[in-house]
């Protein structure tokens, strides 16, 4: 299944400047694996060695924080939009 990942500025050096990348996978984790296959090195920026999201990274599916869903195991549907967003200070 194809989803699109929106790449934030700090990661675009790894994705050769691409702002969005189409990936395949049935879960967020699989989508990130596919992203890693295309752009080796990107995953370790997002996921720690224990397989958890880094503290300062948020991942949203169609605007919903995956921490409110099932984390990296959250299922993907055709056409889902995945956003990787660094934490932002308050206002």
């Amino acid at each position: 299944m194809a989803s699109v990942i929106r790449i934030p500025t700090p990661l675009r050096r790894v994705t050769n400047g691409q702002e969005t990348v189409d990936v395949n996978g049935t879960t967020v984790g699989e989508g990130l694996d596919d992203l890693e296959a295309r752009f080796p090195g990107v995953k370790e920026r997002i996921i720690d060695p224990q397989g958890e999201l880094h503290r300062f990274v948020n991942i949203y599916i169609n605007g919903e924080d995956v921490r409110f869903l099932e984390g990296l195991a959250t299922a993907l549907s055709e056409g889902d939009e995945i956003s990787i967003v660094p934490a932002v200070a308050g206002g």
Binding site: L11, R13, H54
Partner: peptide, 11 residues
Amino acid sequence: PINICEWCFGP
């Protein structure tokens, strides 16, 4: 004008 470490996403 940057706020995130591009290596580990730390502030």
